[in-house]
Nucleic acid binder design. Sequence first.
DNA 1: CTCGTTCGTTAGAAGTTATAACTGCCGCAG
DNA 2: CTGCGGCAGTTATAACTTCTAACGAACGAG
Lengths: 235, 235
Amino acid sequence: MNEGMGRMATKGEGATPRERYRTQLRTEIKERAWEQIAASGASGLSLNAIARQMGMSGPALYRYFASRDDLITELVRDAYRSLADTMRDAAASGADLAGLGHALRTWALDDPQRYFLVYGTPVPGYHAPDDITTIASEIMAGLLDAAQPAGDPADASADAAAADPDEARLEAHLAEHGQWAADHPAAPPALRRALSFWTRLHGILSLELAGHFTGMGLDPALLYDTELQQLTRRR
Amino acid sequence: MNEGMGRMATKGEGATPRERYRTQLRTEIKERAWEQIAASGASGLSLNAIARQMGMSGPALYRYFASRDDLITELVRDAYRSLADTMRDAAASGADLAGLGHALRTWALDDPQRYFLVYGTPVPGYHAPDDITTIASEIMAGLLDAAQPAGDPADASADAAAADPDEARLEAHLAEHGQWAADHPAAPPALRRALSFWTRLHGILSLELAGHFTGMGLDPALLYDTELQQLTRRR
DNA sequence: CTCGTTCGTTAGAAGTTATAACTGCCGCAG
DNA sequence: CTGCGGCAGTTATAACTTCTAACGAACGAG
């Protein structure tokens, strides 16, 4: 049926006018969707409202997205992609763990709802597509790369293990059940550092973005920087 | 108009039959709501579905809750109240910071969506009523109480401040802008401990409950315990 | 027993997602 | 340049949702 295609569907620049129009309209729909999400959250996203804003009526959008959940899934994918790119760029610019931490925070503050789309409350039934978890692994891999060269491995390992028996147990557990990020070659201390980096910074960030620090006269940036400082110091 | 009330509206046991029926039906509505939230999240809560389950039709529920948002707000309030009671009971049973940490985790695992109703993704426009923030302050106060007697204050303070200049800056900032929890009498190191307790445990818990640890072969309990161990050790 | 308050009902407005069927135009093949 | 296939966008419609309005019926206090 669709064998007689004039050009390859490369989706990029040199495509057929129809395809160019299609992708352009898709991105415009997504832009409107992001505006709505920033204003009312993901649950307040309305296809009809988007169509109204774009001057076309209701069901036209179903030519471009199979369903509302489909659109949201794509936005989640884009959010993951954006975070992964941000972290990769930061790492490419020679940023260490602290640099990645700051990159993460500026990315989160740039659009809180986008952060929540990645790390916020999940819908109980929902399972992310495989490519999204692939991007998540990519993010973790970048983190592990940055966590690797911090401090002499043997030194830090012995230090932490000696100071805390549970710490040793956790590192052993990480070394054993470490099918992380497509078997990334990272020593247990690096695994531990990346994990703490992730959980602690997310803890502060999510509480800040959710507004739980407002009203208690606390500077989130100072708290974040202090936590990051303690995180990048050899323990 | 409503002056001639037979008995005081004490809302408890000895009320007029109408009131007893009313409160009983309200709690049944909330129970069904919790079931739906556990199954489909807060955004999937449907008043019509609840009414259908209870054998009565649609708008009858508006006799008991002014709106859907009103019901959700009350559920959020109950969730806060439940967490505050759990923490208070744990503290009353002589639990230290570690005990509070375990109480928090069991409470969260008992109903993840209830946890997300408290600490999950917020709706951009929404502002919590005053009594809810009061309960939140109560929770923080209990945390500060538990964070107080851990270690000699002067010793720990000097230790942390000496090890990290940013740590000293943060503690000074906390001491200065410390209108926390209705001016709780807590020393800066205790403030710092309680804050780290909150942000770090929430970081791990929210990621675990959101399912971000699944698929990477990691035992969340071990991670949580290790973090809690490190948190309760004098730094 | 009477009467007012409350409960629950149905009807309906305004909104949503999503499908089906129809029109009109774009753009590629010949 | 022409013709026609396929895609875009339209309306109509179904099945939902929240929420208001108006009505009947039951309950309980006096």
